[in-house]
Design a protein around this nucleic acid. Structure first.
Length: 363
DNA sequence: AAAGCGTGGTA
DNA sequence: TTACCAAGCTT
């Protein structure tokens, strides 16, 4: 991070004591991450943006290999902008929340054309870009540009609700958390502070059994004082969702090609590839009527047991059917036969990888 | 503004 | 096995 020298910086309000403690801790405990600049290195806005989008609701462990792949395939925002959509979706396949990939691509195009390939150093301009919300805009301001920004993510919410024992449940407590975060955020070392809060949440102030004995701000923590820190943040109970059911059809042509199609851009698994499926309904549909919805009239055989998969908002039980099609079979309107060798280049979400693997195993 | 939107790991 | 959790955004 580049720090302004003492001579040219105006007097700033004194930081909360907590910030200095946190920054000292960060200097010796910071994690080394592929997208993170080393001390005294300047952060790269492209890497910061790419990693922040990938990390939305996603674990560091899951992101690491995808981040490396993207950086190799698309070393610059310009190269990402000029890549075909299918390549971007395919590279993102398996990471989840696929609207992020569409927005990522759209954002790269916009940065290339509207900002000559340089991310704007301005919160409002950043937040106006697709896929960049309050958190991500603030994180880019702080981490990439070392500008003061109040960065509140899930880690910060956990740390702050524990520090102040905020009894109000999330998401109702978001405004109160933001207000506390605003008060705590220092005017210096913005990027380090933001990452320090996230490292604290990720390594010590963890959801279950936090390691308070190692915490640099233990002495300022109301939660630790009363010993119930692990019960924060309070959360509104989640509503459980009904299981949905559907059928999917895995058609293997004699030359080894698999019948695929692309889902609509919007909605669940938007823009991703799939083997043809029925709608996924909450009512337990009649399995004997499944093959009436098959894309081709073939000798369909059900593979047991069905594929089970859990989405964010509902569990799915997918009955998979397999059939072989003779050489020369043409794909129905809107579908295509993809050679088995080319499957890895398809944008297949995990549920479809499961279904196709099951089908191939049983053919 | 409440709901939609993936996946893999862990207790 | 079930339930919860992980650096949120969009409509």
């Amino acid at each position: 991070m580049i720090k302004p020298s003492a001579s040219d910086s105006k007097p700033k309000p004194a930081s909360a004591p907590h910030a200095a403690l946190l920054l000292d801790w960060y200097d010796q405990a910071r994690r080394v991450l592929p997208w993170r600049a080393l001390p005294h290195e300047q952060a790269d806005p492209y890497r910061v943006w790419l990693s922040e989008v990938m990390l939305q609701q996603t674990t560091v462990q899951a992101v690491k290999p995808y981040f490396e792949t993207f950086l190799r395939l698309f070393p610059t925002v310009e190269s990402l902008a000029s890549a075909p959509t299918e390549q971007v979706m395919s590279a993102w396949a398996g990471l989840g929340y696929y609207s992020r990939a569409r927005n990522l691509h759209a954002c790269a195009k916009q940065v290339s054309t509207q900002y000559q390939g340089e991310f704007p150093r301005d919160y409002n301009s950043l937040k106006a870009l697709p896929g960049i919300g309050d958190y991500t805009a603030s994180a880019i301001m702080a981490i990439a540009f070392d500008e003061r920004a109040v960065v509140v993510d899930g880690n910060v919410e956990r740390v702050i609700t524990r520090l102040f024992r905020i009894e109000q449940p999330l998401p109702l407590s978001k405004p109160a958390i933001k207000q506390r975060a605003e008060q705590l955020t220092p005017h210096e070392r913005s990027g380090d502070y933001a990452q320090a809060m996230m490292d604290l949440g990720a390594t010590l102030c963890t959801p279950r059994s936090p390691s308070c004995f190692l915490c640099p701000v233990r002495g300022h923590c109301a939660g630790n004082k009363s010993g119930d820190e692990a019960t924060f943040p309070r959360k509104l109970p989640k509503k459980s969702r009904e299981t949905r059911y559907g059928a999917a059809f895995m058609c293997l042509r004699a030359d080894g090609a698999v019948l695929l199609r692309t889902r609509p851009d919007k909605g669940l698994l938007g823009g991703m590839s799939e083997i043809p499926t029925t709608h996924w309904d909450a009512e337990a549909t009649d399995p004997t009527k499944d093959t009436a919805h098959a894309p081709l009239e073939l000798n369909w055989q059900q593979v047991l047991p069905p594929v089970r998969h859990v989405f964010t908002h509902f569990p799915l039980v997918l009955r998979v059917y397999i059939a072989q099609a003779p050489l020369g079979t043409e794909a129905p309107e809107g579908m295509r036969f993809t050679p088995r060798q080319a499957l890895s280049g398809e944008a297949l979400p995990t549920i479809m990888v499961k279904a196709i693997a099951l089908g191939l195993d049983n053919l």
